[in-house]
Amino acid sequence: MTSAHAARRWFWYCLLLVPYAGVLWVPLYNRVDPVVFGIPFFYWFQFAWIIVTAIITALAYFAKV
């Protein structure tokens, strides 16, 4: 494995960790406001992370990591 290849792989592994940072720090999102379409922040924030995670894994797939 070349070092450029290894560096690229590390970049993608770090990107795959981003969703962890997004949802593991609970105080960040344990609140009601802003409410969107009647849905409190706590709920739509985590829902949004599902979509972001799917996009990140899809990008990793297309980048052939």
């Binding site: 795959l16 969703p19 949802v23 706590f42 709920y43 985590q46």
Partner: peptide, 17 residues
């Protein structure tokens, strides 16, 4: 009960790698 959300969301990047 919504812990199921972050749970399933963290599964896939882990399994992918």
């Amino acid at each position: 009960g919504f812990f199921a959300l972050p749970y399933t969301l963290m599964v896939y990047p882990f399994v992918y790698a």
